[in-house]
Nucleic acid binder design. Structure first.
Lengths: 231, 231, 231, 231
DNA sequence: AATGAATGAGGCTTCATTCAT
DNA sequence: CATGAATGAAGCCTCATTCAT
């Protein structure tokens, strides 16, 4: 108990350092100092600097994935499942803000290196969302025109970006609750005030019109772009 | 025609190289080779490697920002404004997929360095969303409980992440239209099928219940976390 | 014994290399090769190339300064003090001819960069001369019209330049003794044969005349210069 | 007249820039800017950066050398000749303080490169001093135990270092006259007050004793040094 | 002759990794 | 296992020099 696993100590230190400085800017000696071990010790537990990053993903994302997966097994309602997913993610990020930063930045930054390699766990984690959406669609709760594989990215992108609001705290500080509420509500019900009763139809019509128009504009602008396009 | 501005040539090359290798992994000599200039030439046009990245943001985001801004001036309907914003962003990203990658990754990666410094343009670009939402709220079209400064991040996060769908193309390729439709719809109307007439209330009750429960869970899990918390 | 302090090894190597090639022409890799360490090792002991130079001044001048200072404490006669000073400097330069070269050249060359910064030790070392002269003046041994702060420079300039006689050895080689004798004698008694007894007065008169004349010439030539002066 | 020789313009600019920044730190573009010509223009008039420095020596030292040489032809008294030499040098340095700086620093710094090559003019200039001393010795005016080739360096070293007193002006500002007086007097008559009549002998005895002692100490300390010597 | 944009060799410095203790 | 001094490969950047205009 008193002797903390060095592996864990290094991982924790690395999360902190990567979060603060970024993977490339962080130095091994920074991590070593943070972990209170010698530089060389790190190479007893990890093959190289990059391996530390990979291990963070594996282990930390793994924890969230496993816990979320377990909680979802007991749930059938897609809306509740989405809530669980969202809450788990946001809470994990809140608990360890540094981890959030690492996932946020490094996942992308090093994505080109990881690719198909080891981050299947992350893909699996993303796919949970797609599965929930599919479940909701089969239960006729979620709209069938939503493409789960697109929506999962929209959703995770939102979740991911939103964690910065309280990490980097550019504007103001919000509670996890507030952010959870905002994200879930926005995603489930949209930004527009639902004008129940009769107004619903109108709303729909407008939207459809709008989107139809979108498509026309899209085609037009695509054509326009041909001439604009820089080869 | 034949003599292309070297500044532009370098920027284009850098976008390509950064997109492929990432800012830190990219070498000045890579950019030089791509731009077909000598390494030293780059330093005639840019102060340093980092300045290239900054210039990409400034100039490229600037272009999108300016065009979007201009188009929005002619529009009053928040929904249409959101459409314009979304379409412009997605189209720009489609036109130059590498740029998308650079914005996506580097903006975050190097964000800690940029901060308040030069990327005000990016902040301004993000704030357009918040402004649209505020406009919608004052017109009683958008729900007042949405926090514009949070929602703008949720939305941009979604947009940003979604561009990867066709850039990195992990799953399948979708048209700009499809992605625009998906994003806009999801954001404006939510994922749930609107059960108009009386069911609206029920939906709302469920949601509220659900969220109430959320909060209880939140408190519970926070307590749980105390024991879980890693010192 | 066998394990020589790396710091010292690098300093020694740097003195040798700087002496041979000069600060700017010397390469870090030259010093590393001379010190038989890796290039990077140098940066464990010094912040940068310039810091090596500074350290040479600090440490080596420091040694001479300290030893000289200590020896002077036991002495009261200004003439003997001057001897000690001179001998110590010349002996140190003889012991390490390269150091002489480094002090000679680099002190001046890099003086503009060092200035008030770290070479106070050198200034202190120079001021010893001024102090000795002042002591001699208060003892009525040294002429009161000598300005100590000017004379210290004249004297150090002479010492410094003279070390080149045996370092660069442009003409012939002389012993430390010979040079010490030459310098001390010249400085203490002048170049002119002292015509003791009655002739002393005449000598003085001649000199005064000569110098009076100097001043007249000076004024004349200054006037001449006005027309010569390039704007 | 209006069209100033570009060669001259560049030389003047180079003197100014070298004086301010030093040869190695100065950039060709600095000189070009100072001379108000394009970088490339410099290479029409000079082979390379180093050639500019050499030309400065050649031309500027040459001017002083020629003028001094000419004035000395009309003079027979060594003391007066030394005055002329000193005055000419100090005046030239006063007229163009930047040139003083360049000679002072660069002559030494680049001495190892120039060596036997092109700076014969400088050697010739130094040798004037030796010749004057020899003349004084043959006229029985100067002490025969002075070695002209050593004394010329002692003297030039003093002159050179002393110019810094008013160039860098570390302590106080003195007039050319004052410095000329100080240097000449010190060199010709020494620092000690001449105690004419009988005391002259005593002074001599002390000095001789002192120097004898010097030599003993020298031998002793040389022996000491053997053990001190770092291999 | 004059220009100055372009070149590219080469230096200083960093830092992941090793290995003798 | 642990250490941390040492390594040396490799990158960013500078700037003397060139050459097309």
């Amino acid at each position: 108990m008193t002797v903390v696993n060095k592996h864990t100590k290094i991982i924790s230190a690395a999360i902190k350092v990567f979060a603060k400085k970024g993977f490339f800017t962080a130095r091994i000696s920074d991590i070593a100092k943070e972990a209170k071990v010698a530089d060389g010790t790190i190479y007893i537990y990890f093959n190289n600097k990059y391996d530390i990053l990979l291990s963070i993903f594996e282990e930390e994302i793994g924890k969230i994935f496993d816990k979320t997966q377990k909680l979802l097994l007991e749930e059938e309602d897609p809306c509740r499942m989405l809530e669980i997913y969202t809450r788990q993610y946001l809470q994990a990020m809140k608990k360890n803000k540094n981890l959030g930063e690492v996932i946020h930045i490094e996942l992308r930054q090093t994505n080109r290196l990881i690719k198909d390699y080891r981050n299947n766990k992350f893909c699996a984690y993303l796919n949970i969302i797609a599965d929930i959406i599919r479940k909701g669609q089969s239960q006729k709760i979620y709209r069938p025109d939503i493409i789960p594989d697109v929506a999962k990215r929209i959703y995770f992108g939102a979740l991911d970006e939103v964690t910065r609001v309280w990490n980097i705290s550019l504007e103001t500080h919000y509670t996890v609750d507030e952010i959870t509420y905002q994200t879930l509500t926005l995603f489930r019900q949209g930004i527009k005030i639902k004008q129940e009763k009769k107004s619903g139809n109108i709303s729909k019509v407008i939207t459809d019109n709008s989107l139809e128009e979108c498509r026309r504009i899209d085609i037009l602008s695509e054509n326009q772009n041909i001439s604009e396009e820089q080869s």
